Amino acid sequence: MLDQIIDARAASLGNGFHVRRILPYRLRRMLGPFIFMDHGGPVSFSADQVPSMDVLPHPHIGLSTVSYLFDGQVTHRDSLGVQQIIRPGEVNWMTAGRGIAHSERFEDPATLAGGSLEMIQTWVALPEAAEESAPTFENYQPQELPIFTDKGVWLRLIAGNAFGLQNDVKTHSPLFYVHVVLQPGTRFGLPQGYPERGAYVAKGSVEVNGQVYGVGQLLVFTPGIDPILVAREATTLMLLGGEPLGERFIWWNFVSSRKERIEQAKADWQAGRIALPPNDDKEFVPLPEDHSRPAGSSPPPQAFS
């Protein structure tokens, strides 16, 4: 019933900002097209901490970044000239394609006053035909993301198709991504029709086949099996998965089906061929040292990007 249980590992974004890193994992690189997943927070900052937590402009290729907040607010700026504040319940979906740079900054006055931040960031690898597409950015408001409620269940479809719901979030391959809140004792199943499916426990705990799993665990389920998850307490889950895309290489913030494309992206960033955001171009994250390790193994990805 369970193929794998992935325990989130602590990861640092620098300046004392720590996250739970779920994907990639050494024994599981991807789940459907999802190749990266971070859970940041909940965390509160003092006014003097917030500027140092900013994620400076940095590049991506070959993927879509998906930002979803439980609490707080973040300002996105990218090389397309987009400036977008994301708030809880919204989706920021940025497709890097052949190359984009962006920043994420904590400019919310409430955050500066000591408010909290909690967000999930995932990266969705692109199919080969879309890897060199033109970069795009879309913000989707809560009213564009369908909600379903039933006794003990609240859920929002973030992207894809699941439980008979669909929305206009543009995806490039078959997938599902769902935010679910369960009340204690509620029994719940997974979307059907996908070969790879998982449930990440963001809050609370669930019982599956007599075993209890808690915060920071990603449960990866056996294809063809339809498990029942029972909430042991008030629980928040992120359900995700879809059709696999085949092998992908990941190095820093670059994802590609070809190792040589990763090398080209490194050279492009070093040479300034990936433009900085025009309204945030005074600083940026330099290319990390390679240390001659193969693409797909180092260095760790830049989170919240």
Rank of each mutant, 00 (worst) to 15 (best):
residue 1 M to G: 15
residue 1 M to V: 12
residue 3 D to E: 15
residue 9 R to M: 07
residue 20 R to L: 11
residue 25 Y to S: 14
residue 29 R to Y: 09
residue 32 G to Q: 04
residue 33 P to K: 02
residue 34 F to T: 06
residue 46 S to W: 11
residue 46 S to I: 07
residue 46 S to E: 06
residue 47 A to C: 10
residue 49 Q to L: 11
residue 52 S to H: 14
residue 64 S to Y: 02
residue 69 L to K: 05
residue 75 T to I: 08
residue 80 L to W: 03
residue 84 Q to C: 10
residue 92 N to S: 10
residue 93 W to F: 03
residue 97 G to V: 03
residue 97 G to H: 06
residue 104 E to W: 05
residue 110 A to V: 15
residue 122 T to Y: 03
residue 123 W to K: 13
residue 126 L to Q: 00
residue 128 E to M: 11
residue 129 A to D: 13
residue 130 A to L: 07
residue 131 E to I: 05
residue 134 A to S: 14
residue 135 P to G: 01
residue 142 P to Y: 09
residue 153 V to Y: 05
residue 156 R to C: 06
residue 158 I to G: 00
residue 159 A to W: 00
residue 160 G to R: 07
residue 162 A to P: 14
residue 164 G to Y: 14
residue 169 V to G: 02
residue 172 H to Q: 06
residue 177 Y to V: 00
residue 178 V to N: 08
residue 178 V to Q: 04
residue 181 V to R: 13
residue 184 P to M: 07
residue 189 G to C: 03
residue 191 P to C: 13
residue 197 R to M: 05
residue 201 V to C: 03
residue 205 S to D: 08
residue 207 E to V: 08
residue 210 G to F: 11
residue 212 V to G: 08
residue 213 Y to R: 10
residue 214 G to Q: 09
residue 218 L to K: 08
residue 219 L to F: 07
residue 221 F to S: 01
residue 224 G to K: 10
residue 226 D to F: 11
residue 234 A to S: 09
residue 235 T to P: 02
residue 237 L to P: 12
residue 247 E to L: 09
residue 247 E to V: 11
residue 248 R to P: 01
residue 252 W to C: 07
residue 252 W to Y: 02
residue 252 W to A: 06
residue 262 I to D: 08
residue 270 Q to N: 11
residue 270 Q to P: 03
residue 274 I to N: 00
residue 274 I to D: 00
residue 276 L to F: 10
residue 276 L to I: 04
residue 277 P to D: 04
residue 278 P to C: 00
residue 289 E to H: 11
residue 293 R to N: 02
residue 294 P to I: 08
